[in-house]
């Protein structure tokens, strides 16, 4: 949007919403919405506390492990599916089911199989992230311009050359797109896992604040979490834009 010929930055309207939040909080209309300023004061108070740091590091560990497995398994599987028709036909129905299935329903199973700890949360995170990475990688490999591959072959490329110098790079925009969506889903997965298992990480913290009606604490943690999730997503979108210049013409 433009005001007097100046283009307003894309996310600048969030300031207006923040102001609105502050005003609603000040009027004391509802107990659940404390003024934003108060939330920020609380935020700076709790951000260095051991409880918060412990929750953050537990969450970060589970999240990073989950993302690692999603990528380390997802990309090779996706590439194989894109290249092998048999594998593709065997696996695709399942990938399609799990990419849109209500995976929350599986968390109780993970809890009884792997206990109420880190393992279950890591698996939940992986399950949330991996399927879209597989699907996008597969799509990226499948839509590679035939003539790029032919070009490499006509100049004597070995299959390994073709893989390293053509397939991976040509599919990179899709792979990165898949990783971005997968990571966003993994953030949701790690939080859902913690909420359901609820004795670890932010899940425990939310439970504590909610039962004690510490509203500004609750919002403070939420803001940190949202900001982190948003930053991760924007960073990956930035990486994706760096290769977008060739996504359209391959």
């Amino acid at each position: 949007m433009r005001v007097y010929g100046h283009k307003l930055p894309a996310m600048s309207s969030l300031l207006i919403w923040a102001l609105l939040w502050e005003i609603v909080g000040r009027t004391g209309a509802t107990f659940f919405i404390p003024p934003l300023s108060e939330v920020f004061v609380t935020l700076f108070k709790i951000i260095g506390t051991p409880a918060f740091l412990a929750a953050l590091s537990e969450t970060a560990q589970a999240f990073l492990a989950g993302v690692f497995f999603s990528i380390a398994i997802g990309i090779p599987v996706g590439i194989l599916m894109g290249k092998s028709r048999l594998l593709d036909e065997l696996l695709l129905p399942w990938v399609n089911i799990f990419v849109s299935a209500p995976l929350t329903a599986l968390v109780p199973v993970l809890m009884v199989l792997f206990g109420f700890g880190m393992t279950s949360i890591v698996i939940t995170t992986t399950l949330f992230g991996i399927w879209i990475i597989i699907l996008n990688t597969r799509a990226g490999v499948r839509q590679i311009n035939r003539s790029l591959v032919e070009m490499a072959i006509s100049f004597g490329a070995t299959p390994m050359d073709a893989f390293v110098k053509i397939y991976f790079w040509a599919a990179l925009p899709e792979i990165l797109g898949g990783v971005r969506i997968g990571v966003i889903r993994a953030v949701k997965g790690v939080i859902i896992g913690q909420l359901l298992i609820s004795i670890v990480g932010f899940g425990a913290l939310f439970e504590l604040y909610a039962t004690n009606f510490l509203m500004s604490h609750f919002w403070a943690v939420l803001i940190v979490l949202f900001a982190l999730a948003f930053s991760i997503s924007e960073f990956l979108a930035f990486l994706e834009r760096k290769v977008a210049y060739y996504a359209a013409k391959r």
């Binding site: 003539s147 790029l148 070009m151 006509s154 100049f155 110098k165 790079w169 290769v243 210049y245």
Partner: peptide, 14 residues
């Protein structure tokens, strides 16, 4: 002994 020139150029965009 043969080299190919492609209709769609087949250049590596990256």
């Amino acid at each position: 002994n043969r080299a190919f020139v492609f209709q769609d150029f087949a250049l590596l965009p990256w």
